[in-house]
Write a protein that binds this DNA or RNA. Sequence first.
DNA 1: AGTAATTTGTTCGTATGTATC
DNA 2: AGATACATACGAACAAATTAC
Lengths: 75, 75
Amino acid sequence: MPIPMGYRRIADDLRARIAAGEYPPGERLPTYKELAEMYSAGVSTIQKAVLLLQSEGAVVGVQGAGLYVPEDWKP
Amino acid sequence: MPIPMGYRRIADDLRARIAAGEYPPGERLPTYKELAEMYSAGVSTIQKAVLLLQSEGAVVGVQGAGLYVPEDWKP
DNA sequence: AGTAATTTGTTCGTATGTATC
DNA sequence: AGATACATACGAACAAATTAC
């Protein structure tokens, strides 16, 4: 069992990817399930990381649709 | 079964109590377990609410000790 | 038009780790 | 050394909204 990244490190990584333009504003991010696979984490942990990013305004979640980067977000 | 308050409402309520001086800076807040009883919620839900307040800087958690209101926090 | 599948949102419980008392 | 308390991780179940067919 590899050492888990932890939801904070996952949030940091996602934030960095967004800042780097990997997920441009308006584009959909991977789903919880996909992120969970990407980071070898449980869905609950991903949700915790995303909740952090949402509180910063870096990500907006739309129920039923997905996770998006707001058009105007600035790191 | 009463309708649950939800972690956002719980966070709002706690933030308001802190702002009202019910928990002065430097003082310890109730424990997770106590808060869970106060709000008739599960500990996980309380933790989610507290995580929100921590991201705002309204609360600081000290492992093994408790939850505290920072001396300099301003609503 | 309507149903099923997908996806995020919320709640809860359990287990384990780590720091403090 | 033991008890207490926060931190983290995971999973299960259900709700709510959107999307796909």
